[in-house]
């Protein structure tokens, strides 16, 4: 169980004007500025839940994960994870969590991943039998059995990421923080890691908080999303409810046999795309039926489909601050 209350984090930094002059000025006087990376975030995560933690670059996702894993001290607010305060960094707490950062590595570069696994086994005091079982099972699931004894530096990015995941799970943590685990990976590797995480979460009931810029990751894995922007919480709820919160709208794609001009289309709804062969309209949910009837009777329609607005697009609207904070 993770409880985050009014979490805040400020960083101080200083500015430097371009060029030598700015550098010299900085030698004598530095103007210290404060950046609020995280402002007043509250949410909670139940045991076994897998949530998507979303936000644009610089929104404060990584900073929040660092506070949750105890790497950073917060400026204010509270976090409690299974009764522990992360930044006290108690060993008992460290045994319960694990964090994988897509852009950082913990494996020893010059040695095979299996050596790093063994090191983690020793560090976390995992017994021999459990260690063997865990490595065998996870290596099988991740499809890396043949690669366990290959030096890490000889592995591809995707293979390395799988090994990073495996290394992070040697001590069977209750809580797993994943910071962009699929960044830079090809589609197949992304899919494999996604599948792995889904199965792992189902089998072990591990609580997972995952950040990713690939919506496919989030849609495949999480039912719930927490979205932050500019350090503030802008959405916390079911992934499927995002569209409803934003005012339920549907996309109406219509194919016509002859050209229809833009003016005509605009009578039916907001025109998102238009071509000689048809158009895509954005229509409020409750008007779909009426609009469709009017189009069918008034225009030379060949075919039509009604779809949801892609979730990626809705989330982008949160990112652009088009929607008020909830």
């Amino acid at each position: 169980m993770i409880a985050v209350e009014h979490l805040r984090k400020e960083f101080s930094y200083y500015k430097k004007a371009t060029g030598i002059k700015g550098s010299l000025q900085n030698v004598f006087h530095r103007e210290t500025l404060t950046k609020e990376a995280v402002r007043d975030i509250s949410f909670s995560v139940e045991k076994g839940e897998m949530i998507g933690f979303l936000g644009p670059n610089g929104a404060g996702k990584t900073t929040t994960l660092k506070m949750l894993s105890g790497i950073l001290y917060p400026t204010g607010g509270k976090v409690e994870i299974d009764g522990f305060i992360p930044w006290e960094r108690k060993n008992e707490f460290k045994r319960r969590i694990s964090i994988v950062m897509g852009q950082k590595n913990q494996l020893w570069w010059d040695l095979p991943a299996s050596d790093s696994f063994y090191l983690n086994k020793c560090i976390f005091g995992v017994d021999d039998g459990t260690y063997r079982d865990v490595v065998t099972e996870l290596a099988e699931l991740l499809d890396v059995r043949e690669l366990l004894n290959v030096q890490v530096r000889r592995l591809s990015l995707g293979e390395r990421m799988k090994m990073e995941l495996l290394a992070a799970l040697i001590h069977q943590p209750d809580i797993l923080f994943l910071d962009e685990p699929t960044i830079g990976l090809d589609i197949l590797s992304q899919k494999k890691i996604r599948e792995f995480l889904r199965i792992y979460n189902q089998q072990r009931k591990t609580t997972v908080i995952i950040t990713s810029h690939y919506m496919a990751d989030i849609e495949a894995l999480c039912r719930r999303a927490v979205i932050i922007n500019q350090g503030q919480l802008v959405y916390d709820g079911q992934l499927g409810d995002i569209n409803r919160v934003l005012g339920e709208r549907k996309l109406l794609s219509v194919k016509t046999s002859g050209e229809v001009n833009e003016k005509q289309w605009e009578n039916f709804g907001r025109v998102r795309e238009i071509s000689a062969a048809g158009a895509v309209l954005e229509v409020p949910q409750e008007k779909v039926k009426a609009v469709l009837g009017a189009i069918l009777s008034g225009l030379p329609v060949e075919d039509f489909t009604v779809t949801e607005i892609p979730i990626e697009e809705s989330i982008a609207r949160f990112y652009q601050k088009e929607v008020a904070t909830i």
């Binding site: 894993s69 105890g70 060993n91 460290k94 045994r95 964090i99 950082k104 913990q106 976390f124």
Partner: peptide
């Protein structure tokens, strides 16, 4: 570069 993180999160 933040490589220290991996030591801080493990009991070492």
């Amino acid at each position: 570069m933040g490589g220290l993180n991996k030591y801080l999160i493990r009991p070492v």
